[in-house]
Amino acid sequence: MKIGVVVFPGSNCDHDCQHVFKDVLGQYVEMIWHKETLLAGLDAIVLPGGFSYGDYLRTGAIARFSPVMGAVKEFAKGGGMVLGICNGFQILLEAGLLPGAMLRNKSLHFICKDLSVKVENAATAFTGSCQSGQVLKIPIAHADGNYYTDPVTLAAMQANAQIVLRYCTPEGKVTPEVNPNGSLDNIAGIINAEGNVLGMMPHPERCAEAVLGNDDGKLIFLSMLESLKGKKKQLKMVGA
């Protein structure tokens, strides 16, 4: 598969994503500078973590107007698979590719640690290799991960199973105590209604190989590859 990793000024997890797809999973990876306006021949796009444009104004607020974002939007509208991790998630929200907005963490702290997240929907293109309800240990590293959306949108997302990942105890219980940032409904990751754009605050690229002591994150990338392989078949199923 051919994976595009977008590089904004201030991205800092771009090479981690490249490493996982290229060296761990043996895929072809193209690094895409944010000034690019054409994305041809890509199977999936990753918006990596980091601090694009220094997080000035709001996280992702300026990156969303980068030249490349027009092409990313087109790609997503055409059904292309887009994964936004951390700052990438924040950019997807600002760009309107996912509903809602990020607020400062409730504690006001930048939090960097391993957390348990529950796969609430294992029937997506990004979680297909997980078991439903499976608990993944994936680190977060952010100051603005306090997800917010209006009650109507939240209810619609809950009804559509668009809340894909939620912060939980290691046993898989979703409780307010394990919510690290004040995120609505313990949300750690959401998907769009069409099922081709996922945003998540935890960093799967930081735990995708055994040598790092944890390869839970690899499941997200494997799911993407599996889904891409079976894309035609899957599209038919969605159509039916």
Partner: peptide
């Protein structure tokens, strides 16, 4: 368009 995110 830019200065405020009117969702929040």
């Amino acid at each position: 368009k830019l200065l405020a995110n009117t969702i929040v």
